[in-house]
Computed example of a mutant assay.
Amino acid sequence: MNPPTTAAPLSFSLIVKTFAPGWPAAVMGTGAFALSTLHFSHQLPMLAGPAWALHYFNLALFAAISIPWLLRWLMAWPAVANTFRHPVAANFYPSYAIALLVLAGQLRAFGGHESLALIAWWIGVALLFSLTLAVLLSIFQGEHVNLDHITPGIFMPPVGLVVIPVAGGPLLAVQPEALRDLALTINGIGLGSGIFMYTALLALAFHRFYVHKRLPPMMAPTFWINLAPLGVTVVSVLNLVAATPFAGDKSAYLMAVFLLWGFGAFWLVLAMLFTWSVRKIDPLPFSLTWWAFTFPLGAFTLGSQRLSEVSGLATPLAFGWLAWALLAGIWTLTLVKTIGGVASGKLFQPHP
């Protein structure tokens, strides 16, 4: 009989060493919640106050998460290297760069701080390409990945790539003249590579879902990640088309994103049914993977809002309200449980 394990004494060095690479997903989810709430405040003015509160909270959250996340690279490099070689955990390293890109969108939407938004966007782009390429090379050069490791977490790198034009498209108008061509090209590279990488990985994920054992209950929230590239791509395509002079007739793009959004609406229902079915078999233990509920829901809400805005359709907006209501409840519950996990130190205990 194994002796009971005791929790390691909590210290700042332990927090840094065990700080999971996916912590910035909390910033991603909160930022999407803030942006979608701000958009809905145009219809329901009472939401303006909560939207601004979420904006300021997310800025503080990003600052708090940045300290241990960045220090880990200096103080605990062996732990960073180990997780970079992990075929599941490595996919979450780009989340820090995605958080910066989301903050760029916030800085532009809340108060029009376009100069700060440009800084956040350029830093986020540089980090995103660096981290994504490093993660892919680590996976491609190894022989350590099998079907057990194929979870929807593999969508994180392409999610980051398709996020680039969310703020990058509207910011093209205020880019320095000397950088505008480069910025437009970067938006195109990000969106194009993200879409095709997501398409390839979607086939791989479906292969796992069809022929392999089901996801562990702890990983069930990641099933929702598929909503993220679908919702974000709607916003990114429409933003980039609006900012690109050679895009020409916009109707073809609108039809394309309408079909993408349709798959997202289908996946939203499937994700709810899937989570309910998993919950009937096993409890869903709380972990940081719960933040995987939030950004995808926020991304789909933003995509629904943008599609309704340009098409005049009311049904996408209704789906957006549904996703936003789910997001509000799940974000609140996840935040409360995260605060409890931080206070107790459970989220900083080394894995056996």
Rank of each mutant, 00 (worst) to 15 (best):
Ala243Leu: 04
Val211Pro: 00
Leu202Ala: 11
Leu254Asp: 02
Tyr253Met: 00
Ser236Met: 01
Pro221Asp: 07
Ala242Lys: 14
Ala265Val: 15
Leu254Tyr: 02
Gly248Asp: 06
Ser236Gln: 03
Leu254Asn: 01
Asp249Tyr: 02
Pro245His: 14
Thr222Ile: 07
Ala252Val: 09
Leu259Cys: 09
Pro217His: 09
Tyr253Cys: 03
Met218Val: 15
Val237Lys: 05
Ala265Met: 15
Ala243Ser: 12
Asp249Ser: 05
Ala265Thr: 12
Pro221Thr: 06
Asn239Arg: 07
Val237Cys: 07
His212Leu: 00
His212Ile: 00
Gly248Tyr: 03
Ile225Lys: 06
Leu227His: 04
Ala200Asp: 00
Pro245Lys: 13
Leu238Asn: 11
Gly248Gln: 08
Gly248Ala: 07
Ala203Thr: 12
Ala200Ile: 14
Met255Val: 11
Trp267Met: 11
Ala247Val: 03
Phe246Ser: 15
Phe223His: 14
Leu238Met: 14
Pro221Gly: 06
His207Phe: 08
Ile225Ala: 05
Val237Met: 03
Phe209Ala: 12
Ala203Arg: 09
Phe223Met: 13
Trp224Gly: 01
Ala200Phe: 15
Phe266His: 10
Val237Gly: 06
Trp261Val: 01
Gly231Glu: 12
Met218Gly: 13
Asp249Leu: 03
Arg214Pro: 03
Gly248Glu: 05
Val235Gly: 05
Leu240Trp: 09
Asp249His: 06
Ala203Glu: 03
Asn226Phe: 13
Tyr253Gln: 01
Trp267Thr: 01
Trp224Ile: 05
Trp267His: 09
Val235Ser: 13
Phe209Cys: 00
Phe266Glu: 02
